[in-house]
Design a protein around this nucleic acid. Sequence first.
DNA 1: TATGCCGTATCGCATAGTGATACAATAAAA
DNA 2: TTTTATTGTATCACTATGCGATACGGCATA
Lengths: 258, 258
Amino acid sequence: MPDKDADKSQNSLFVGTLSKGLRVLRAFDESHTSLSLAELVARTGLDKSAVQRLAYTLHVEGMLDKDPTSRRFRPSHAWLELAYAYYWSDPLIARAMPKLVALSRSIGETVNLAQMSGDHIIYALRLPNQRTQFAASIVGRRLPAIATAAGRVMLATWPQPEWETAVATWPIQAVTPKTVTDREEIRQDVEQAMRNGFTITANQMILNEISVALPIRGVDSRAQAAVQVSVSAHSFDFDRVRREILPALQDTANGILA
Amino acid sequence: MPDKDADKSQNSLFVGTLSKGLRVLRAFDESHTSLSLAELVARTGLDKSAVQRLAYTLHVEGMLDKDPTSRRFRPSHAWLELAYAYYWSDPLIARAMPKLVALSRSIGETVNLAQMSGDHIIYALRLPNQRTQFAASIVGRRLPAIATAAGRVMLATWPQPEWETAVATWPIQAVTPKTVTDREEIRQDVEQAMRNGFTITANQMILNEISVALPIRGVDSRAQAAVQVSVSAHSFDFDRVRREILPALQDTANGILA
DNA sequence: TATGCCGTATCGCATAGTGATACAATAAAA
DNA sequence: TTTTATTGTATCACTATGCGATACGGCATA
C-alpha cells in the first residue's frame, strides 16, 4: 500500500486532473483579480494546453467568467455560492451571527468572528463599521494566527505544550512597522491571555488599530473560534477598551459558547 | 470541429474529471451540510469509486474536511477563501461596501447588495440587523430574479423587449403564501419601477417584510446590481418606507454608480 | 446471529487528458 | 507602418490516468 502521506500524488486515490483544476482556481487572489491564459500558465506552472482545457471547463461549468473582449478570466458568483454552503455547514456561524450583529450595533465598532485554520486564522464573519478598511471588511481573509489577538486567545485555551510549539514554530508576518515579531513577546502575550481570558493588541495588522479578542470554547474547553473587536487607537486606549468594549465582548462570547 | 455548444461533454476541450469534481462540491448546500460517501454517490450520480477518489482528492487539497469518526465530508474554510478572492475581483464590492455600511448604520435596517446572476439574483453583500433571519444574513444566497424587488429594479433598466422576455420566461418560485406568481402583476411592477426608479414589495421572500430596491446602473445605463433594504411590515408601511428609507437609499445608490 | 449497507482497497482496461506543435490573432517593438 | 514576439486557439498521436467492477472488512440494522 502506498504511503498515503509521503507524496499525495503517488497515492492511487489521488486525482491529478482535479488537483490541477483547483490550482487554476487558486491562482486568483487579492492581487490577481483577473488573469489571462498566459498568466494562468505562469501562476500554475501547468502546460499551456492543460490550462486552456481546465480554464475552458471551469468557465463552461460557471466557476470562471471570461471577458469576451479581453479574454481574461475572473471568479464568478459561484464562488459566493460556495461561501453560502459553507455558512450552512458550520453551526457556529448561525449561533454567532445574531449575537455579533447585536454587539456590532450596540458598540458601533468593527466585530469579527475568526476561526483557526491551520497555522493561520480566517475571518468567517465580519461586521464592519464606517472606518473599516476594505481588506478588513470581507470574509475569507487569512492572517498568521500568532500575530493576531484572535489567534492568541484561541491558542491560550490549548494545552500549554501545544500553544508553546505553535508560538515557537508558526509563521510570523510583519504587516505594519509595529508588528511584534519577537516570539518571546508573543509567548508572554499568550500566557497573559491564559490568565485574563482575553487579549488586547495594538498596531499589529493595522496601524492605529486596537484589537481585543475572546475565545469561543468548545465542549473540551479548546477554542477553534474567537470573537474580536477592532477600535481606533485615536479614540481608545487599553484602559478605555477594558472599560467600554470588553464587558460587552465577554457577554457576547459567553452567549456563543460552542 | 465539434459543435461547441451542442453538448459540452462532446467538446474536446472539456475536462470531464474536473467537471465531476465540481459536481461533488455542488452536492453541498443549505440542506446538505455534511455528506457521507454514499450520500455523495446518490447526490452526484457518479460511481462509488469515482466519488471515493474525488472526495479524497478534494480533502487532501483542503477543499473538504473529513470527520475522522463519522467519516462524513463537509465544506472547509477554503470555500470562504474563494469568496475573498471574488470580493477582490469585483470592483463594485469595494465601491459599495463603505456606502452600504454607512446606510446600514444610519437607518438601522438590513441592507444588501444584490447582483444579477443568470435568471436569479445573488446577494453579494449583506449587512443584517438584529431582526434578520439567518438565511437572509449570509452572502451567496440566490433567489429568482423576477420574484424580488432587487431583480425587478435591475430588469427595469434593461431594454423593454429584454425585460419583458425575462418576466415572461424566467422561473417563479413561491416562497411565502403571499409570493406573487402572476406574471402580469410582475410585469406591471417592473413597468412601474421603470417610471419610479425604485420598487417596493411586501411579503415576497419573507412574510411581514417590506423590501425596497434601487438599481446601480453601469455606464450603459444597464444595471447588473441593486441596493436593497428590508424592513419589518410591523413597523413600516409603503408610505413610511418612501418617507424614511427611500431618500437615504437613493443617495446610497447614486454614490455607488458603476 | 444473520443480513445489508457502507467505506476502503485493488485491478485490468480504454479512453480521457496530455504535451507537442501549428497557426491565427494580437500586442509590442523597431 | 512594418516586423517580430507573444498569446490564444485548434489539432493530433500517444500513454498514463481515472474508470467501473469487484472483493472484503467493519458497522448498522433486523
